[in-house]
C-alpha cells in the first residue's frame, strides 16, 4: 500500500505537471481538490486518464470519480479493491 501510494504521488505530479511539488509534500489524506493541492475538474479528468492508462481501471461517471479522487489514500484504496476483484 505504501509503495502504491508513493508511486501514485509520482504519477500525479507527472500527469498534472506539478513542477514544484515532491511526493513527500502530498499528505495521503489531504484533499486533492479545492484547498489541498488546488486541483480542479479538468485535473480530475486527467487523473481518470491516469487510472485508465496506468492501472487499466475505467471510471465512467464523473460523479463516481469525485469519490475516488478525494485523496491519494482513497485512490490507492480504490486501485487495491479493483486489483483484488
Amino acid at each position: 500500500m505504501e509503495a502504491l501510494k508513493l508511486k501514485l504521488k509520482q504519477q500525479i505530479i507527472e500527469a498534472l505537471n506539478l513542477q514544484d511539488t515532491r511526493p513527500e509534500d502530498i499528505d495521503d489524506n489531504a484533499p486533492l481538490f479545492g484547498e489541498g493541492l488546488g486541483l480542479d475538474s479538468i485535473d480530475s479528468l486527467e487523473l481518470m486518464v491516469l487510472l485508465e492508462r496506468q492501472y487499466q481501471i475505467k471510471v465512467e461517471d464523473p460523479r463516481e470519480g469525485r469519490k475516488i479522487l478525494q485523496s491519494v489514500q482513497t485512490m490507492a484504496e480504490f486501485i487495491k479493491s479493483k486489483q483484488a476483484a
Binding site: I42, L45, E46, V49, E52, R53, K58
Partner: peptide, 9 residues
C-alpha cells in the same frame, strides 16, 4: 491510444 483514455487538456 486508439481513441481510448485521452487527456482532455
Amino acid at each position: 491510444y486508439a481513441e481510448a483514455a485521452l487527456n482532455p487538456t
